[in-house]
């Protein structure tokens, strides 16, 4: 039990698989992605199965999630954001359930892997850039130069804006990766203390309970932030600030 707190992030192949020279083994990471899809879908399907006019408790949670994301899209993307609602909702649910299921002892948190979070951020970044160029053409470039600034400042401002724009997927992916990795390491270390101290482990146990509650909050907040920043990037692409 006194294992390295980093061991929980190790990826273990379950079904080795290789296609065209690429290793696409079904791993513990893929397993928990699959579980996330199944659990989040089943949760929503079961809680809304009655489709009652007067909602049941589960239905209220499902509708609250729907309304939260719907409001998020409306408030942050603005007009023309409706077509992207299913994508943002899927993104939110995928990250949220991935984070929450990662809190199950002995599970695997795929959102604590930079490869996964960066892939998601990169897809959003590329999609948003493509949408912006498709909608505005060359006018999309005005995103990198503040309207009305003196022309000579372009030499300085455009590289800065460009780097800032390019840093979006980095900060988006690093933020969630760092939060979840740090959270899980702290949990593991303190759990180690509890086990090592035995009877005297009561003090770190209280801390463990508090930090577990805090990590649940982080799990929800990070999913929310990931989704809301995607909305803000989408807004910039659709409306150019």
């Amino acid at each position: 039990m006194a294992s390295n707190p980093m061991d929980q992030f190790t990826i273990v192949p379950i079904v080795p698989l290789e296609v065209a020279g690429f290793d696409i083994s079904f791993t513990n990471s893929a397993l928990w992605m699959t579980i996330t899809v199944v659990v989040s879908s089943l949760f929503l399907l079961l809680s809304i199965r009655s489709r009652g006019t007067i909602p049941t408790r589960g239905q209220m949670v499902a509708e609250m999630m729907y309304n939260t994301v719907a409001n998020m899209v409306r408030d942050n993307v603005g007009s023309g954001g409706q077509p992207y609602f299913p994508f943002i909702f899927t993104l939110f649910m995928f990250v949220l359930f991935g984070n929450l299921l990662g809190m199950v002892p002995g599970s695997f948190t795929f959102t604590s892997h930079i490869a996964v979070t960066f892939a998601m951020a990169a897809i959003i970044f590329i999609a948003v850039t493509v949408i912006g160029i498709a909608k505005h053409g060359t006018r999309f470039a005005t995103l990198f130069f503040p309207h009305g600034a003196p022309l000579w400042t372009a030499v300085i401002l455009i590289p800065i804006e460009l780097v800032s724009y390019l840093s979006r997927p980095v900060s988006l992916s690093v933020r969630i990766f760092a939060n979840l990795t740090v959270g899980h390491v702290i949990l593991k270390v303190i759990a180690g203390f509890v086990v090592a101290l035995g009877v005297f482990g009561i003090v770190p146990l209280a801390g463990l309970v508090a930090i577990t509650a805090f990590e649940f909050m982080i799990a929800v907040i990070q999913a929310y932030v990931f989704a809301i920043l995607s909305c803000i990037y989408l807004h910039d692409a659709l409306h150019l600030h």
Partner: peptide, 13 residues
């Protein structure tokens, strides 16, 4: 943490 990440991401890029 969010602000630190924002800053580091810019420098990293």
């Amino acid at each position: 943490l969010r602000i630190a990440v924002d800053l580091v991401a810019g420098v990293a890029v």
